[in-house]
Amino acid sequence: MFLDTMFLLSALATLGGALMVVMSKNLMHACMYLLLSLFGVAGLYATLGADFLAATQLVVYAGGVVILMLFAIMLTGGVEEFVNKFGINKIPSMGTTKTYTIGAIVSLIFSFVILKTLSPLFKNYSQADLPPMESTVEDIGVLLVTDHALAFEISSVLLLGALIGAAVISRPRKINGGSK
């Protein structure tokens, strides 16, 4: 019962947050709803017994990504309301019949593909069939440096590249080779 409750709450947070991200007119609010949605996803991981993944979700998204997004929104000045004082959109919306149709078809195709790929997983497990919850930390650690060592290394090289790139971009430039 506890797991069911937790699943429902997490799923509600995830879906509700995601919906509000799209519906919200204010970018800053959208970002906060994204935080809610990401928390919901962490809750879903925890319900599935993937404790390490849930904590990683919190550390990476709640701690890092959302704050960086808030920074980016603020520094680019994208926080103004998109409706005027009469409640009418200042910027015409992009939704026309054509875009909605294309969007619907694309999402339909994608959901078919995803459901087809995941179909072997959709079995009705009863609570007793499930393996007991165990710590996943050790398994993840062992897999990362054995089977998935290449992916691990490639992603670390990618992150190093991003780090160096950021340092190069933010480095103070010399103007005309002289002093500042």
Binding site: F52, A55, Q57, L58, V59, A62, G63
Partner: peptide
């Protein structure tokens, strides 16, 4: 099991 990591996250 992931106490320290959880603490960092929240």
């Amino acid at each position: 099991n992931i106490g320290v990591f959880y603490l960092l996250g929240v």
